[in-house]
Simulated assay, not measured.
Amino acid sequence: MDKASVYQKINEILVDEFEVDEQIISPEASLKESLDLDSLDYVDLVVIIESNFGVKLAEADFEGVVTFQDFYNIVEQRMTARN
Rank of each mutant, 00 (worst) to 15 (best):
N73W: 09
E17L: 00
G54S: 07
V46A: 12
K32M: 01
D44N: 14
F18T: 10
E33C: 00
F68M: 08
F71T: 08
L45M: 02
F71K: 02
T67L: 12
S26W: 00
F71D: 13
D70Y: 12
D16M: 04
V15D: 13
P27E: 12
I24R: 01
G64M: 08
L14Y: 03
E28R: 04
S30L: 06
E63R: 14
Y72W: 12
V15S: 08
D41Y: 00
V20Q: 02
D41A: 14
Q23W: 02
I49A: 02
E19N: 09
A58D: 14
F71C: 12
E19C: 00
G64A: 11
A58N: 11
L35A: 08
E17F: 03
S51T: 15
K56P: 05
V46M: 10
D36H: 05
A29I: 04
L31V: 06
V65M: 03
E28F: 02
Y42N: 12
I13G: 10
N52K: 10
V66F: 04
I25K: 09
L35F: 08
K56Y: 07
F53M: 03
I48N: 07
T67K: 14
E19F: 04
G64H: 14
E22R: 08
E76Q: 15
E76V: 15
E22K: 14
S39H: 01
D41I: 02
D38W: 01
E17K: 15
N52T: 08
E12F: 04
E50H: 07
Q77M: 15
I25L: 09
E59I: 10
E28A: 12
S34W: 07
D38I: 09
Q77N: 13
E76N: 15
F62G: 10
E17G: 00
K56D: 13
E33T: 08
A58Q: 13
V75L: 05
E50T: 09
V46D: 07
V65T: 13
E12T: 15
N11I: 11
